[in-house]
Amino acid sequence: MVNYKSMSWYELLAIPLPDGGYLLDGLFVSLQVASLGYVLGLIIGMFAANAKRRGSLFVADLVTIYTTLIRSVPELVLILLVYFALPELINQLLSFFGAERIEIDKFAAGVLVITIVQGAYATEVIRGAMNAIPKGHIEAAESFGMHPFVTFYRITIPEMLPNALPGLSNLWLIATKDTALLAVVGFTELTLAARQAAGATKSYFLFLFAAGLLYLIVTLVSNIVFGYLEKRLNRGVKHA
């Protein structure tokens, strides 16, 4: 019988699970899903926020419907919809056309859910930051004949980032913690890895405490990185 209480933290984190995984592997997978979903969500948020501000009324209404629906539905429900309901709908359509059934990959489903959620929240964060940009700056760029895409890249993004960064840093932390919800569909991220290891060894406190510690480390490191970025972006900016 292994004495887990006498093991070092590194040995504790590296204890193999029944399926051959590790707590650190679970953390790595969680960060992969969170990173991909966060970046894709930012891309969606950038264009959706700009469309909501400067697009046609029809496009702005579509973005409003998207952000309202996603922010109203709990992430857990979205995960169940994407992993169970969406494949069922797709397979019914495929069966109608005589095609073979498909299965949704758990990793892809996780990234998709994080992307959808992050995109909705990032849209509102970025839109608020864009509204803080003086209209004269955009009008000046347009008066010089600058292409809208160039204006967005050279004027809008650099000026809105300092205002958006605090909200975006919070969204990153939300993304890392939302990956824990993927455990409900059997996706082996950090939380499920800790639960499996705790169940196999009956050392619930040690493994769950270790998982919580890893989440804390991610949060502290993230705060340092975003704090550094905020200082860099605000360098030379005068505040009233």
Rank of each mutant, 00 (worst) to 15 (best):
A183C: 07
V225M: 08
T156A: 07
A108N: 10
D25H: 13
R195P: 01
V113K: 00
L78P: 04
T68I: 08
F226G: 06
A200H: 09
P18D: 05
E75T: 09
E11Q: 15
S222A: 12
A198F: 09
K231P: 01
L213V: 15
P134F: 10
L93C: 11
P148V: 07
Q92M: 13
I155N: 05
A197H: 05
L62E: 02
V221W: 12
E159P: 01
V113F: 06
L173A: 11
A120W: 01
G128Y: 07
Y153N: 13
T151P: 04
A120M: 06
I15N: 04
F84N: 14
R127K: 14
P148R: 08
L78C: 00
L233D: 01
G145Q: 03
I43V: 15
P148I: 07
E189M: 11
P158R: 12
S6N: 15
I65D: 03
R53G: 00
A109C: 08
L27P: 01
G128I: 05
L181M: 12
N163A: 15
Y215E: 06
V77R: 06
Y38D: 02
G227I: 14
E88A: 14
N170P: 01
S35T: 15
A99G: 11
V150C: 00
Y153W: 14
S169G: 15
K202T: 13
I133H: 04
V2P: 06
I15A: 08
F144V: 08
L23Y: 09
A211M: 08
L112E: 01
K177E: 03
Q196P: 01
A48T: 02
R53D: 04
F152V: 09
V185H: 10
P87Y: 06
L57F: 09
S35I: 00
S6A: 14
F205P: 01
R154L: 07
D25P: 00
N50L: 13
A193G: 07
A14K: 11
V225T: 10
F97V: 15
Y204A: 09
Y4E: 05
L213Y: 13
R232D: 07
I116P: 02
H137Y: 14
Y215Q: 05
F205E: 06
N234W: 08
I126P: 06
A164G: 03
Q196L: 14
L173D: 07
L31H: 09
V29Y: 09
K231W: 12
P87M: 07
L57T: 11
E124G: 01
V33D: 03
A132M: 08
F209C: 08
D105Y: 10
L12W: 10
G136Y: 09
N170L: 06
A175S: 14
Y228F: 14
I15T: 13
G45D: 02
M7Y: 06
K202V: 10
A240R: 13
E139V: 05
A48H: 06
G55D: 00
N50F: 12
S30M: 02
L229R: 05
G236Q: 08
I174M: 04
M146R: 03
V2C: 04
V39F: 14
M1K: 14
N223G: 03
P166W: 12
K52H: 09
F84Y: 15
A197K: 03
I114W: 02
L78A: 01
T64W: 09
Y10G: 00
S222P: 10
V117R: 03
L220Y: 15
D25L: 11
L23D: 04
L213M: 15
A240Q: 13
L78H: 06
